[in-house]
Design a protein around this nucleic acid. Structure first.
Lengths: 207, 207
DNA sequence: CGACCGCTTGACCAAGGTCAAGGAGTGTGG
DNA sequence: CCACACTCCTTGACCTTGGTCAAGCGGTCG
């Protein structure tokens, strides 16, 4: 929304509702009639699908500032996945109908939607490539490097959420994440709780 | 482009160039400076990435009517993947710069881009979900059902491309696709060359 | 006829999912 | 203050899935 002009911004804020959910609340389910798209303000949201045996697979983890269900803006009447609060969260929601109407009137809004969809499409394709090309330790290394402050030789990261959530985000079972972390120990990665110490950033890049 | 008004359509056609490529030609490579986005007219294009050992993984297979590299419209100066002609193809290409400019002027074009990006984002997220939830035979069954004409009890499909391309599209090695097909024989799927005979559509849905 | 290409099949192996058991940390009640 | 429970994570054992390598098969083309 940072890119919107004053009037467009005002009109978006006008149709926006802020809501809280508690950990594990379901915001919506796959195939339900879609009314809103969402923007996370605080906390994390899990988007996931079920197969017919009931196993869950995460599709995306959304953090503060990220939107979801925006792909329904163009077309589509039903949600495509389940959305669950991973913790206590605050989200803003926008009625799809109204945003569609606004996008036709306000040029800024259409442009902002294009930027948003593009960025998502890019990260989503990136995710497919990573799933298909990388092993578990490589995915974890990749995630750590993406979240390293800079090209300093060493770094320390605090995970913003539970490890089980990270596992889902990377398309792994929690056990596999655990094993990936312990295999990264030899590359100088030390895990204690949510704190991850990286002694040698360049060694991590080799993986 | 079907949704564009006359003037918008004319302006798009104006900046469009039609090109042919031969099988295995590379249209562009990952990280190259991005100049165009593309629309396939005839044939199929493979979008893929490499890991550092040089293994390839397909991200998407684009057929007639589909576009690629549109995610660079909003932002981004470099291609994110490699694009290769899977056979002799004809594509239309559009200068990103010019389309960006047009999208700001012509409302239709911005709307069409939104629809296009939305649709891609949906299918791409769908792809992640399928990769993470389904086994090889399930993916193949899913593909066949998606390409069945209707809810007739039986059907016959002709693959529009080589099996090795389908394998890549489904995130499998060619050998795994072969095995998946042979495991579907017991569900009444008969493969001869590119022709696939499905005796019992509902049995396939159970898988 | 031989070469080549795409596909299939078999054998083997590695990655990671699943199940079960065992910590470690935190909060609760006695 | 300690015992207990609970949650989350880790570890080990096992097994399934699918990747890889190599050989063989069948069709097509020169």
């Amino acid at each position: 929304m940072a890119s919107l002009g004053a009037s467009a911004l005002a009109r978006m804020l006008e149709i926006c509702t802020v809501t809280n959910y508690e950990a594990r609340d379901i915001l919506f389910r796959e195939a339900e009639a879609a009314e809103y798209f969402y923007c996370v303000l605080t906390g994390y949201v899990r988007l996931y699908r079920l197969n017919k045996e009931g196993r869950e697979a995460d599709i995306r983890i959304c953090g503060p500032g990220e939107t979801f269900a925006e792909c329904l803006l163009a077309l589509g009447d039903n949600y495509l996945y389940n959305a669950q609060a991973a913790e206590n969260i605050t989200v803003a929601r926008f009625e799809l109908q109204k945003v569609r109407a606004l996008a036709e009137q306000e040029r800024d809004i259409a442009q902002a939607i294009i930027r948003n969809l593009s960025a998502h499409l890019r990260t989503t394709m990136e995710c497919i490539a990573n799933d298909r090309l990388q092993t578990a330790p490589q995915r974890v290394a990749h995630y750590l490097l993406d979240n390293c402050p800079q090209d300093s030789a060493s770094a320390s990261i605090r995970l913003p959420f539970q490890k089980s959530l990270l596992a889902g985000k990377l398309g792994l079972a929690p056990e596999a994440l655990s094993r990936a972390f312990s295999s990264l120990r030899r590359a100088g990665v030390i895990v204690r709780g949510r704190i991850i110490q990286i002694n040698d950033v360049s060694a991590l890049k080799q993986i």
